[in-house]
Design a protein around this nucleic acid. Structure first.
Length: 433
RNA sequence: GGAGGGGUGGCUGAGUGGUUGAAAGCACCGGUCUUGAAAACCGGCAACGGGGCAACUCGUUCGGGGGUUCGAAUCCCUCCCCCUCCGCCA
C-alpha cells in the first residue's frame, strides 16, 4: 500500500516511478479521489461534532430536569443524522474506489534498480558469479535414463492432475535431505529462528503480503464444506510461499525495537495455480502446482533493511556454495520485479541439461510496502510508531535444487550425492537410478 | 456437532446507555531524593485520520460488520477468533 500523503505531495514522481515498472497510473484520478474524500470528511466531521455537542446538551438537561424539554434538540439531531448518513455513504464509496486503485499498484522501485521492461534488462552481479559451469549438455532431469522409476508424473496425473509428481526412494530422500540441510544451515549458521507455520491463511494475510487482491487467479482457494463463498472477506487460501505465513506474524502489531530484527525460516510446501503459465515448463519438475521451499523472512527497522537484504542474499548463496552448484546473481530490472519488491536479487543456478541458468531463489526488500498493508509497526527511540521493513527470500527452492543436483551431479552410475548432504542421506554417496 | 464463558490501550485488567479514550496495576519516559543506582514520591504516556505555519483543534476507533437510541465499550442481530465441558475424529 502506498503512502497517500507522498502521492499527494509529489504525484509526478510517483507516476514516473510506477512507469518504470510499466504501470501507467492515472494520478490525477487518485488526487481527485483523495481531495474529494478529504473534503467530504471535513464536512462529515463538522456534522459529527455538532451532533455530539447536541447530544451532550440533552444529557445535561436530563440530568437537571425531571421533565426536560428537549424535543427541539432531538429534532435538530435527526436532521443532522440524515446528512451524516448520506455523507458516510459517499465517503465509503470514494474510499473504496481509491483503495481499489492503491491496493492494485506495485511497490516503487528503489533508485539503484535498473530501469527496463523485462528480464533482458536485469544486470548480473559479476563479482558474485560462483562455480565452474559444465558447458557439455547433460540430460535434462526428466530425460535421465529410467528416472521415471523415481520421478513419476504419470501416477501424479492420475491421482492429482498435471503439474504434480511422485518422488520415490532416493529422490524422495534427496528432497527431504535438501530441506533438512537448508533449514539447519539457516538456523545454526545464519541465526534464523525455525518456524513451522500454517499452510492455510485467511484473506487479510494474503492482502497483507499482496498476493491479493491482484493475483487471485494464481492462488489455490480452500473451500470448507458449507463455506459461504459469497463472504469475500472470509475466504481461505493455500500459501503460494511461506512468505505469507511468516511475514504476517507481525501484522497488526507494534513490536519493540529491541526485538528487531526478526529472522524467521520455514520449510513448507507451496501451492501455485500457475494460471498464467500454461504451456511453460510443462515437462519435468521446474514448474509444479506444489513444491517444497525453504523461505527466509526478516523484519527490520527502515535504516537496516538494505544491509539485511545483502545479508539475506549471502545466506541464500551459502546454500548453493555448500552444495557446490554453479550460480550467478542477477539484480532485477524494474519491469521484472515482483509486486511487493522495491529491490530484488535472483539467484540463478546452472542447469547443464538446459545449458542455461534458472531461477532458484529470489531475495527481495519490500521496504514498508507490506508493512503498510499489514499495519506492522514498531516503536523507535523517540517512541514514535513507525512502519517496519519486510524482506523475504528463498533459501532456496527445494524442488529446483533437486533438479540442479540431478543435472550437475550425473555420473554413469547414478546421481552423486553432494558432500554436505551425505549425513542427511544415511551416508549414501550415490543414488542409483 | 451440542452446552456454556469470553474478546477493552505495549501487557494485565475494571467498566452494563450520558463529558469514559476509557479506573487500577505493570512496562516505558521525565523529574525530586541519592556519591551512583535501587526504592519511594511527583508528573507524563493509545492508534489512525481531517483542519492549521504553529500552539492546537476536530473526528473515528473497546474483535469485524450491521442495527436500536438524541447519545453505545455498555442493548439487539450477524460473522470471526479464543477458552471450558460433552460428542466425533487425525
Amino acid at each position: 500500500m502506498h503512502d497517500i500523503q507522498k502521492i499527494r505531495e509529489n504525484p509526478e514522481i510517483f507516476a514516473e516511478l510506477q512507469l518504470r515498472r510499466g504501470i501507467e497510473v492515472d494520478v490525477e484520478q487518485v488526487i481527485t479521489l483523495d481531495t474529494s474524500k478529504r473534503a467530504q470528511m471535513t464536512k462529515l466531521q463538522n456534522l459529527q461534532n455538532e451532533r455530539n455537542e447536541l447530544s451532550q446538551k440533552i444529557g445535561l438537561q436530563k440530568g437537571k430536569d425531571k421533565n426536560p424539554t428537549v424535543d427541539d434538540l432531538i429534532n435538530k439531531v435527526h436532521v443532522i443524522k440524515d446528512q451524516i448518513l448520506q455523507l458516510e455513504k459517499q465517503i465509503s464509496a470514494t474510499n473504496k474506489d481509491l483503495e481499489l486503485i492503491l491496493l492494485g499498484l506495485p511497490n516503487l522501485p528503489s533508485d539503484d534498480v535498473p530501469i527496463g521492461s523485462d528480464e533482458s534488462f536485469n544486470i548480473e552481479i559479476e563479482a558474485k558469479r560462483f562455480g565452474k559451469i559444465n558447458d557439455k549438455k547433460t540430460a535434462e532431469h526428466f530425460e535421465i535414463a529410467s528416472i521415471d522409476r523415481l520421478m513419476d508424473f504419470e501416477t501424479a496425473a492420475k491421482v492429482s492432475g498435471s503439474r504434480f509428481v511422485y518422488l520415490r526412494g532416493g529422490l524422495a530422500m534427496l528432497e527431504r535431505a535438501l530441506g533438512q540441510f537448508m533449514l539447519d544451515t539457516h538456523i545454526i549458521k545464519n541465526g534464523y529462528t525455525e518456524i513451522a507455520p500454517p499452510l492455510i491463511v485467511n484473506n487479510s494475510s494474503m492482502v497483507g503480503t499482496a498476493q491479493l487482491p491482484k493475483f487471485e487467479e494464481d492462488q489455490f482457494q480452500v473451500i470448507v464444506h458449507d463455506n459461504d463463498i459469497t463472504d469475500q472477506g472470509n475466504r481461505k487460501w493455500l500459501i503460494p510461499t511461506a512468505e505469507v505465513s511468516l511475514t504476517n506474524i507481525v501484522r497488526e502489531k507494534i513490536t519493540n525495537k529491541a526485538d528487531l530484527p526478526l529472522r524467521f525460516v520455514a520449510l513448507t510446501s507451496c501451492f501455485r495455480a500457475e494460471a498464467g503459465a500454461a504451456g511453460r515448463d510443462t515437462r519435468g519438475m521446474i514448474r509444479q502446482h506444489q513444491f517444497q521451499k525453504v523461505e527466509l523472512v526478516s523484519i527490520t527497522e527502515p535504516e537496516k533493511s538494505e544491509q539485511e537484504h545483502n545479508r539475506m542474499l549471502e545466506c541464500a548463496e551459502s546454500i548453493l556454495k555448500m552444495l557446490e552448484l554453479p550460480y550467478r546473481v542477477m539484480l532485477l530490472s524494474s519491469g521484472d520485479m515482483g509486486f511487493s519488491a522495491r529491490k530484488t536479487y535472483d539467484l540463478e543456478v546452472w542447469m547443464p541439461g538446459q545449458q542455461t541458468y534458472r531461477e532458484i531463489s529470489s531475495v527481495s526488500n519490500c521496504g514498508d510496502f507490506q508493512a503498510r498493508r499489514m499495519m506492522a509497526r514498531y516503536k523507535d527511540d523517540n517512541k514514535n510508531t513507525k512502519y517496519m521493513h519486510t524482506l523475504n527470500g528463498s533459501g532456496v527452492a527445494v524442488g529446483r535444487a533437486l533438479i540442479a543436483i540431478l543435472e550437475n551431479y550425473q555420473t554413469p552410475d547414478g546421481i552423486q550425492v553432494p558432500e554436505v548432504l551425505k549425513k542427511y542421506m544415511n551416508d549414501l554417496s550415490i543414488i542409483e537410478i
